[in-house]
Design a protein around this nucleic acid. Structure first.
Length: 270
DNA sequence: GGCCAGGCTGAAG
DNA sequence: CTTCAGCCTGGC
């Protein structure tokens, strides 16, 4: 069906800006997104129209929220752009990016894997895990593997995990699954935590530090004032902001500003 | 072959 | 509190 979406919404940028690892361009301009057991094929048709593969019921139950369509990004982008020239250019370059509300467990495991690796290499590892341990869902075009659930990960030994080219991260994933399963990390209730206590709770997991914890807070729980500081954002603060953390100037939506800036620094200025 | 990548840990200053 | 080597593996 056709859906009209008037606000900033660029499928390609949203899929490729580094916040998610399983979104993919499939064919004929369609992008495939998956979350939980849902699969969506979506294609921009121009003039704010999008061809989507699901019905209106699923769209409003699942995807409207996933793409954060109730938030007015145009308004936020304009405010971010008004800070200085750098933010203005980054916001223009990243215009259309939306901060997804991804599945928390998938986000956690994906960003544990992400440390010291490139995006394609992260995506490959996440896909291998999905193909080996995740459920299969049939769509009208293909069979898609879901990201494995906590239960499915629980059934995988550390030894088996180690055979996935995850290196030292295999142990971190094993620890994450273990601590969530045992309730040492209160994962199911994280949505009720304040930003700071959420980060603290996540950091109980081995291999989860400030950066990964902030990615989970931002990309799964939509805590949009959180700014994950990776090497690219550090470089911006050093090289372009002269050591000042200018994200503080737009703290209410600093996470969105961060994503524009990350995308700009990594893909436009290299 | 050598070096480095979208971090974290643990040890030492 | 801050710094820094070492870590698995794949890609160049």
């Amino acid at each position: 069906m056709i859906m009209k979406i008037e606000d900033d919404f660029d499928i390609q940028k949203t899929a490729n800006c580094g916040q998610c690892f399983r979104a993919k361009e499939v064919q004929d301009g369609f992008y495939r997104f998956t979350t939980d057991r849902h699969v969506l094929y979506i294609k921009p048709l121009g003039d704010s129209n999008f061809d989507i593969s699901c019905d209106s019921d699923e769209w409003f139950k699942v995807w409207f929220n996933y793409f954060d369509l109730e938030t007015n990004y145009r308004e936020i982008r304009t405010k971010i752009a008004s800070v200085n020239d750098y933010f203005s250019e980054a916001a223009e370059f990243g215009k259309g990016i939306r901060i997804l509300r991804q599945d928390p467990f998938e986000t956690l495991i994906s960003f544990i894997i992400s440390q010291r690796r490139s995006i394609p290499s992260i995506a490959a590892a996440v896909n291998r895990l999905s193909e080996s341990f995740g459920d299969e869902v049939d769509t009208e075009f293909e069979t898609v593997n879901c990201f494995p659930t906590l239960k499915q990960f629980k059934g995988v030994s550390l030894l088996d995990l180690s055979s996935f080219g995850l290196g030292y991260r295999a142990e971190y994933i094993h620890d994450a699954v273990d601590k969530i399963y045992q309730g040492i990390v209160d994962f199911d209730n994280l949505h009720a935590y304040s930003d700071d206590s959420m980060i603290e709770e996540l950091k109980k997991i081995r291999g989860v530090g400030d950066k990964v914890a902030n990615c989970v807070a931002l990309f799964a729980f939509h805590r949009i004032s959180r700014v994950p500081i990776d090497v690219w954002i550090s470089r911006v603060i050093e090289e372009d902001f002269h050591g000042r953390n200018l994200f503080l100037k737009v703290i209410e939506y600093a996470g969105i500003a961060q994503q524009y800036v990350f995308y700009y620094k990594k893909f436009a200025t290299q």
